[in-house]
Design a protein around this nucleic acid. Structure first.
Length: 107
DNA sequence: TAGATGACTCACA
DNA sequence: ATGTGAGCCATCT
């Protein structure tokens, strides 16, 4: 399982109405600090339709301005549709940050 | 194999 | 609050 596979798998584990940060994913897949690499994996997301990459935000809860699957507007739209309130272009991590209990390595 | 790149993060001014 | 600089990891060229 490649790094990208792990990242994508984590995306499928994000509960509806929640979001996660890049660093969170990196830590969940066993590579804490690889937040940048996570961004890379999402950038090369092979199935943007299957993997909810729009649920991934940076450490400040802000949406990625480089989101390539419909643009920032689409990302915001999907998040709101998931029940996530966007405030000033960002989400309230203290409320919407999900706990990534995903452990691809153990499965 | 080495160097450059990026959807990041943290610390400091 | 905003801007800059350095560190980080996986992938690309």
């Amino acid at each position: 399982m490649t790094f990208q596979e792990k990242v994508l798998h984590c995306l499928t584990q994000i509960p509806q109405g929640k979001v996660v940060t890049y660093a969170q994913i990196a830590e969940a897949i066993g590579s804490p600090g690889a937040s940048r690499a996570v961004g890379n994996a999402l950038h090369r997301n092979p199935n943007p339709d299957k993997y909810p990459c729009y649920k991934v935000v940076n450490a400040h809860g802000k949406l990625s301005c480089h989101y390539a699957c419909g643009g920032l507007a689409a990302q915001k739209y999907r998040l709101e549709k998931d029940g996530i309130k966007i405030i000033a272009g960002r989400v309230d991590l203290s409320v919407y940050q999900a706990q990534l209990i995903t452990k691809p390595k153990l499965i």
